[in-house]
Design a protein around this nucleic acid. Structure first.
Ligand SMILES: [Mn+2]
Ligand SMILES: [Mn+2]
Length: 290
DNA sequence: GTCACTG
DNA sequence: CAGTGACAACGCGGG
DNA sequence: CCCGCG
């Protein structure tokens, strides 16, 4: 795979070069490709590196590189063909095109209207410290548990955390979205000093907006193992719930240290996630959402 | 990073 | 030839 | 309605 400008510094904060980014993605390719498998993707490309000027890409437009797959345009009527990255070649081609972040849908082809997971994106407002964010994620996990749903955890690579709930792909995306909104409304109803259910930076000062809008049709969330196009190049890293209390920072894992962490971890904390195709039938009864 | 288009 | 714009898109919330 | 946000 040809990589142009390997020595170009992509992120001044870490000093990481384009070659460092490529080495990172080559190292996580097996895990990341499993995350992206059969899902439409959106790429955040940044030819100028971290900072202003990056752009999202969810359709091919004029772009093309080896392995890049264009999904059948009929899968999402009214839109151009969506993109998928089925192979290492496709993934590293995206890196050559200066992709820093990989985002994915919650549904897989061909059932783009029936997501196989639900995501709760904890977005802390100004003034929320890391301990409160960790506590917030545990509250989300506990409420989901009361509703009969197991959840898995990752860092966002930024300030927050993502709680992921694997589902059987049997409920329409609007049902899943409405249910996730009801979950967040209950969280905010129970602990309004801790959570808000409305987006917008103003109300959530000192509180956490649990972003359920990631569950809408066509919405994407940054994939596990993706870098973030921010100073330091943090990683969205899966971790076990039992390891959350010991995590000292949401940006602990970065392009610089993530491969070392992955080489030394005793097990994949998400190993069981794929086998849990959870039903929403009972949770929908326990928490009616319309 | 690359292409299509402008002047 | 160099320069420049495009490369997502849509619900939400507030003004 | 438009704007800013993610
Ligand atoms: Mn977030
Ligand atoms: Mn968010």
């Amino acid at each position: 795979m040809k990589l142009t400008h390997p020595e170009r510094v992509v992120d001044a904060a870490s000093g990481a070069t384009k070659a460092d980014v490529a080495r990172y993605y080559d190292g996580v390719a097996d895990w990341l490709l499993a995350e992206l498998k059969s899902r439409p993707v959106a790429l955040l490309r940044a030819p100028e590196g971290v900072g202003e000027g990056g752009f999202f890409q969810k359709h091919a437009g004029k772009a093309a590189w080896p392995g890049l797959r264009l999904l059948d345009a009929a899968l999402w009527p009214g839109h151009d063909a969506l993109l998928a990255l089925p192979t290492r070649t496709a993934l590293l081609g995206a890196v050559q095109m200066n992709t820093l972040e990989f985002h994915a849908w919650n549904a897989r082809v061909p059932r783009l209207d029936k997501p196989d997971r639900m995501v709760f994106d904890l977005d802390p407002g100004d003034g929320v410290d890391w301990a409160a964010i960790r506590d917030g994620a545990v509250r989300v996990r506990d409420l989901l548990g009361e509703l009969g749903l197991r959840s898995w955890l990752k860092t966002s690579g930024g300030r927050g955390l993502h709680v992921v709930v694997p589902l059987a792909a049997r409920w329409p995306v609007d049902t899943v979205r409405a249910f996730s909104q009801a979950v967040v409304q209950r969280l905010a109803g129970r602990e309004p000093e801790r959570f808000v259910a409305k987006s917008g930076a103003d109300n959530r000062v000192g509180r956490i907006f649990v972003d359920y809008l990631r569950n809408g049709e066509g919405a994407t969330t940054v994939a596990a193992y993706s870098l973030r196009a921010r100073p330091g190049l943090g990683v969205s890293m899966p971790l076990a719930w039992e390891d959350l209390a010991a995590l000292e920072s949401p940006t602990h894992w970065t392009v610089t240290n993530a491969l070392q962490h992955l080489a030394g971890r005793p097990a994949d904390p998400w190993a069981e996630l794929g086998a849990h195709k959870q039903s929403l039938a009972a949770p929908l009864k326990a928490l009616p959402s319309l």
